[in-house]
């Protein structure tokens, strides 16, 4: 479904991605784990064309999107809940959800809103509150709900567990699983919380300073001594 081949991306003079090959198949949850600054978020943004890859290609459902403008890529059926959540701070929860539905058929809006509220009931209570006044966990829920409003076929999630209480983290991962299983949405998940992410994933990749160093099934990587030493020792959430 999504194929990233030989992608290099620069931030100014810094080469953040140094030849990445990743494939995400339809119906999968694929996880990318790596330390801070490894280039995980850059990769997700490169898929969305901001910044663009300087070498290599990104294809989505067979279509080359390497040079496409961001808004066109989103219209193809990709949605991202980005790093830092990027909730529109001065818009209400409702307006943030409407922003998620920009590319969607307006006829679906009420139904999708209903589903968002049943997935995250707290958002229904907060619907006329401004995004900037929500707590971190609520913002994360809103970011995921917003991404789902466009009925994406591929959902890109950037560290949905960052800075959240363990109970909330557990809930978020349950919901990601539910989105994948019940709605058939393909998920490409970037995480530092390797334990939860690998348990959830069908397949996983490990990224170190702009390169993929390991790949395998989620269970394999969870058992891998190197992964355990680098990302899991010292307790798991």
């Amino acid at each position: 479904m999504l194929r990233i081949s030989g992608v290099h991306t620069f931030y100014g003079n810094i080469e953040a991605l140094r030849g990445i090959d990743i494939e995400v198949n339809e119906g999968e949850i694929v996880t990318l784990i790596g330390a801070n600054g490894a280039g995980k978020s850059t990769l997700l943004m490169t898929v969305c064309g901001n910044p663009r890859a300087t070498h290599g290609t990104v294809t989505f459902e067979g279509r080359d999107i390497t040079r496409a403008p961001t808004h066109d890529i989103i219209r193809l059926g990709i949605a991202q809940s980005p790093e830092g959540r990027r909730i529109f701070p001065h818009m209400t929860v409702m307006e943030n959800l409407q922003m998620g539905a920009v590319t969607a058929d307006p006829a679906h809006f009420d139904e999708d809103l209903e589903r968002a509220f049943s997935l995250f009931p707290i958002l229904a209570d907060r619907r006329s509150q401004r995004g900037g006044t929500l707590s971190g966990g609520e913002q994360q829920m809103l970011a995921i709900a917003r991404a789902l409003m466009s009925r994406p076929r591929l959902l890109l999630l950037d560290e949905p567990s960052l800075g959240l209480a363990p109970m909330v983290v557990k809930k978020i991962f349950e919901i990601i699983n539910e989105i994948n299983e019940q709605r058939g949405i393909t998920v490409f998940l970037v995480e530092q919380n390797a334990y939860h992410a690998l348990r959830l994933a069908h397949r996983a990749y490990v990224m170190v300073t702009g390169k993929i160093t390991l790949t395998g099934s989620g269970a394999d990587l969870l058992a891998d001594p190197e992964v355990r030493a680098a990302y899991l020792e010292g307790g798991h959430g």
């Binding site: 808004h71 980005p82 529109f88 001065h90 818009m91 922003m99």
Partner: peptide
């Protein structure tokens, strides 16, 4: 209106506006 929302979105976070499918 949707146009006004798009304008406010670009005002608050241009990157996220593009990620929502807005032609900035």
């Amino acid at each position: 209106t949707a146009l006004g929302r798009a304008q406010r979105a670009c005002e608050q976070d241009r990157t996220m506006a593009a990620l929502s499918g807005i032609n900035v």
